[in-house]
Amino acid sequence: MKHLTAINRKAKRVEEYIAVNEEEDDVFALQQGPPQQRPHYPVGCSLVFSPGWEVDVTGGTAGLCQPVERDLYDCYISCYWPAQVPDHLNNYPDWTSKCANATKDWRKIDLVFP
């Protein structure tokens, strides 16, 4: 609101109201239905967005790598998501030995069971 200036009385009253009641969350819609359903993270999902592994920070897939195979080596080499992708550093040094380019050869990599 810093760059907006009230130009009529009604807007001034809104500003005054906000200034006085800043702490209280007491503005409600007239017809408030049941609590609105929002997307949220199912259990076990990673929440760090850079990008996230199975969901992004909004709880969806829009922020994942497109396609996600582009992200595989980054996760693998840096052990970025050891809960989701095998890590190169200690546990699976040979995971991608049959796969030079993940977006093309992803069929050659294995599911691993530590």
């Binding site: 359903q37 929002r38 997307p39 949220h40 199912p42 592994w53 199975e54 969901v55 709880g59 969806g60 897939t61 994942l64 996600v68 595989l72 050891p82 809960a83 989701q84 992708v85 095998p86 699976y92 990599i109 599911l111 691993v112 069971f113 530590p114």
Partner: peptide, 16 residues
């Protein structure tokens, strides 16, 4: 009624 549903990528490692 509706449910939020994410269809996402496989797990490549299974800690189980």
């Amino acid at each position: 009624a509706r449910a939020y549903f994410v269809v996402t990528v496989p797990l490549y490692v299974k800690w189980d």
